[in-house]
Write a protein that binds this DNA or RNA. Sequence first.
RNA 1: GCCCCCAUCGUCUAGAGGCCUAGGACAACACCCUUUCACGGUGUAGACAGGGAUUCGAAUUCCCUUGGGGGUACCA
Length: 484
Amino acid sequence: MNKIRVRIAPSPSGNLHIGTARTALFNYLFAKKHNGDFILRIEDTDLERSNEAYTQNIYDSLKALGLNWNEGPDVGGDYGPYQQSERFDIYPKYAQKLIDEGYAYECFCTQEELDKEKEESIKNKKPHKYSGKCRNLSEEEKNELKAKGIKPSIRFKVPQEGEIGFEDLVKGELKVNLDTIGDFVIMKSNGTPTYNFAVVIDDMEMKISHIIRGEDHISNTYKQILIYKALKAQIPKFGHLGMILAPDRSKLSKRHGATAVSEFVEKGYLTDALINFVALLGWSPTDGNEIKNVDEIAQDFRISEVSSSNSIFEYDKLNWMNGQYIKKMEIPKLVEKIKPFLSKYNLSELTQQQLEKMVEITREPLTLLSDITDEVNYFFGGKNVEIEENVKNDVLNMEVSQKVLKDILDNRIDNWHFDDEEKLHDELADLRTYFKEKEGIKPKQTMWALRAAVTGKTHGADLVAVLGILGYDNVKARIKSAIN
RNA sequence: GCCCCCAUCGUCUAGAGGCCUAGGACAACACCCUUUCACGGUGUAGACAGGGAUUCGAAUUCCCUUGGGGGUACCA
């Protein structure tokens, strides 16, 4: 059996879209599962909309998601070039071959004529497709048109009888009547290939065995199979995935929030969580455990079991999943990911060790990495801390709070072990019991006072750990200034 | 208009004729845990779009309707 070869062929007219990422993922999973190759081809035929920066973004995003390719523009391979703009010279000869063998013909219709034709058929409520007007032009007529300076396009001659179909990897048998497909252009009059022609030639030359893509390509597939047949090339297997829709069931677009993988990253999503979440749109694990990395998913992946319906992209579960990944990620790694969201602070105030500890104790409630920004302000600023307005009134100024803080400052803090969590933990417990027994102050209240003075907030990370990171000097100073 | 695809809780899904009184996850709600916020745990509520047909029996097969999506370019 020939080796399985799949590809992802994005066009660099924008940053890598989350939908493209999912298509890439399913291709990657399929290749991985069957020990095949995953190929990246950049379809930059549309030179006006293509942009070098987008190509880079596609590379970066795919890599960040862990979707590494075996062949591509940057890494090369045996079937290059992998950038479509460098392949322009190979299409005309195939087009000529199709003309010579009677599968295609030159078309001299102008845009205006075409528009008019279409208008007519809409008016008559007929399905609109190209009339085939130039199908049977004589040599004489063609030469005459050429002499007028009209540059022809090349159209594929679609047989108008019977049907064309194929066995779709995810949807099963798909077919359509040939008379619904008009003769379509394969080479534009400017000499460049159209999408449907270029993909076929490229996939054929790159020996792509399976094409997995969105279902918006189903109608293209029929045309492409026609070309494969005319070329007497081996037809790859096709699989069409349902689309990802926005919550309002429309196409996912900027107005619904992030669409590019890099935008999600900027918002504080982890690529591991993103790819895991997106895999769940259409695929589900047999063992019920939804948190899985790409390799684990590949083991359990069967293309035929992928759902064939569209799915809606809802943030709730993605957010939850992102939180799960934040909770289980190794601390040093997490710290690196989180640093960009700490840019407003002077990180050199803390040692690497303190930074790691800080992340470790504050990661729990995070759903986005960016949530940490407002969570950790009190770790910075040394002896000074910003006290939230309501905290000052509702907590610090209370008589009991003042009593607690004074006691800490006068009788306890000098004996506290800031570098020994266990001891400090017990010392805080002593503090609570003392005030509970002596003054009838609720343990909760006691801790509130301390926390408010030290962090300026009423809630936050484990207090013992917070005190440990801040250290004796800072804590003492903060308590002192909290006392009226 | 024409062609094609799809249809289970709000969302993602399990379900390949009897294992279904339809299972799980997220979200919601309640309770428990707790020095705060959380995390976590336990539980509650919540769906087979509608109508026919086939069958002893249908979420599962077939047909129609409805709804949603896609395509209909010398864009990709």
